[in-house]
């Protein structure tokens, strides 16, 4: 397997060279088609990781490369979804899904010509996540879970090869969250895009990921990586297996140590 994302010895500081270090000496490889989860104590620079990989922020030191090329600007092969669904309230679900296609090439230049085709594609995607009947609804007519499904579709509509998820299910209730794990797993198994899932939820990480990376307290770096060798598709039954519980327990212990350990902010010399 080749790695799609390669983060080598990356440091990132905010506010100039002697500002606060968000990450230091970060190393992370993500293989093509792999789903990885990144967990860690709060403030460990998980969001910085997202921005580094998507090219929204440049590393202060080290290198980030995606698909063999050094990242030197916003990447167009990425889809993103956040804790906040951030749908546009004046557009219908369908309208929201069309947004990326109105912006990203090669769809952009074909947009007015092939709109019907794109809409059919979007309809298929919406049906996959159970929103088939809701394409004409506005975001305020959808529940939180449905908005998050729509947000996930928006992140995937332009067929990105890399999906970045920043705590996408954190604001949902436990039942909806578990439902959406299955939704995500199903689309991922069908389309096999590479996924980086940043989360606080260790069960979520183990449920969804092939590999779980644990980050240290700020300045963040990867201190442990665990392969999750549970068969797919994983179901709620999987999450009651002893291996599952043991892994979650082990991760929890790692993070507890990180939280208890030296947590003071370090500054670059």
């Amino acid at each position: 397997m080749t790695s799609l994302v390669d983060i080598a010895d990356v440091s990132l500081s905010y506010g100039g060279a002697d500002g606060t270090l968000a990450v230091r000496g970060l190393n992370l490889q993500v293989n093509q088609g792999e789903m990885v989860a990144v967990v860690g104590p709060s403030g460990c620079g998980k969001s910085s990781l997202m921005k580094l990989v998507t090219g929204l922020l440049r590393p202060t030191a080290g290198s980030v490369s995606v698909a063999g090329k050094a990242v030197d600007g916003p990447l167009k092969i990425v889809g993103m979804a956040f804790q906040n669904a951030s749908l546009l309230p004046w557009r219908t679900t369908m309208g929201n899904l069309m947004l990326p296609l109105e912006i990203v090439e090669p769809y952009r230049s074909r947009f007015s010509r092939d709109k019907a085709e794109f809409e059919a594609e979007a309809r298929k995607l919406l049906t996959t996540v159970g929103l088939g009947e809701f394409e004409r609804r506005f975001p305020w007519q959808l529940s939180g879970g449905m908005q998050q499904r729509a947000s996930l579709c928006r992140a995937l509509i332009h067929k990105p090869s890399l999906l970045m998820l920043d705590e996408p299910f954190a604001a949902l209730d436990a039942f909806t969250r578990e439902e959406l794990w299955d939704v995500l797993q199903a689309i991922w198994m069908e389309r096999s895009f590479t996924t980086i899932l940043v989360t606080h939820d260790l069960r979520e990480a183990v449920y969804l990921a092939d590999t779980v990376h644990v980050m240290s307290a700020r300045p963040g770096r990867v201190i442990a990586s665990h392969k999750v060798n549970l068969p797919r598709p994983r179901t709620l039954e999987t999450s009651f297996l002893p291996e599952f519980g043991a892994l979650v327990q082990e991760l929890r212990e790692l993070i507890r140590i990180q939280r208890g350990g030296p947590a003071e902010m370090e500054h670059a010399a």
Binding site: L56, P74, K76, M80, F82, S86, I103, V104, R154, A155
Partner: peptide
């Protein structure tokens, strides 16, 4: 976040 989504799309 919305700005990030859009900027990451180019």
């Amino acid at each position: 976040e919305l700005e990030d989504v859009l900027r990451s799309l180019g």
